[in-house]
Amino acid sequence: MSAPETPAGGTVARTPFGRTRRGEPVERWELRLPSGAAAHVLTRGAALHRLRVPDAAGALGDVVVALPDVAAYEAAEGYPGAVVGRVANRLAGGRFSVDGVEHRVPVNDGPNALHGGAEGFDQRVWRAEEVTGGEGPAVRLTLRSLEGDMGFPGELVARVTYELSGGADGVRLRLRYEATTSAPTPVNLTNHAYVNLDGPGTVEDHVLRAHASRYLPVDEVLVPTGELRDVAGTPFDFRAPTRLGERLREPDEQLLRAGGYDHCLVLDGAGGGERVVAELTGPRSGRRLRVLTDAPGLQLYTGNFLDGAWRDPAGRPVRQGDALCLETQLLPDAVNRPAFTAGELGGGLDGGVLRPGAVFTGTTTFALDA
């Protein structure tokens, strides 16, 4: 597809990216600004493939981990760049109940179901279409998840729109999530991009600030215990800018269980709409990422399970600590944890459940400057 100019001055281009092992064609959609900044989105997994933005010297570079082809994405564990669901994060025991009826999701993470099960949304090819009339070039991806898909009730239609915009204050990539259902079902959508603002190398020198006064401790299989714990005096206190590696190797039971950070920060100001919840800076590039969201949670994951099996397009291995994830979401396992859906933490859902006639919505913006 050609790259017509959008009303906001950017372009949208669609190109083939290969085929899945099942023979399904995968497309890559490029959203590009006149400055050269660009986002690439794949129809497989609705994945953020690349995000190229300038550093402090004006040089464009990728700030998310990319893999070279469809086969690499299919072989990769860890959900690189994907939109995950039907329920992001871990469902304890791979089970939940809605209106007194128990449902089971095939486990794929020890005793738990992770990111929607073995055949979650990251494994599917979504339908894509260009969206016009916004602040910049945009693409909307749609997936229909049938009744009984991975054990979930109801037919769910999920959509995510990526929109890229820019100006004197930097580059913004906005993700808008929507979902509707034919029967009550839990839903929790997020993006699982792996970020390194400095390009290849460690993220331990990145500095993070997060507006979160509480976090969710986890048990031995990394499922939240149900406690909303104060971050004060713990390695999870990022209320002041803190180098990621500063406390990473402290003998803290929570860090030891996860092999680093793999915990949900409970964000302040939930229910107040989209607001700045985190700020990340890369010391070598001078890039800054601000995360804005209307979600109540932010899963901080420091790539603890990356083992070098991934290779980026230049052939470099991606190892533990080479990237991190900042996954905006509803609180994990919320359908099984009433305290996680109380008040403004519920994200507008009824006990973590989306019901017919209602619409699940969520917005997250990644704002980058240098």
Rank of each mutant, 00 (worst) to 15 (best):
N89P: 15
Y215I: 05
S35D: 13
N108P: 02
E119D: 15
A358R: 14
C264L: 05
P54C: 04
P80F: 15
L48M: 15
T364S: 11
T132F: 10
W126D: 09
D122T: 03
T328N: 04
G148W: 04
H115E: 11
L48T: 03
T20P: 14
V101D: 08
E178P: 09
V318G: 02
E220H: 14
R44Q: 13
E129G: 08
P106V: 10
G201A: 12
A38Q: 13
M150Y: 00
G78V: 13
V131E: 08
G120Q: 06
E102V: 13
L173T: 01
L146A: 11
E227M: 14
H206D: 07
E220I: 12
P338R: 09
V203F: 03
A76D: 14
G352H: 08
H206G: 05
T43I: 12
R319G: 07
V187Q: 11
A179S: 10
T363R: 11
R337A: 08
P317R: 12
F121L: 11
T6I: 11
R22N: 15
S165H: 03
Y73I: 12
T161W: 03
L33N: 04
D369S: 07
G308T: 00
L51G: 01
D149T: 03
S35E: 14
H40A: 12
D294N: 02
V157A: 06
T132Q: 14
V276C: 10
V207N: 03
T293Q: 00
R311V: 06
V277T: 02
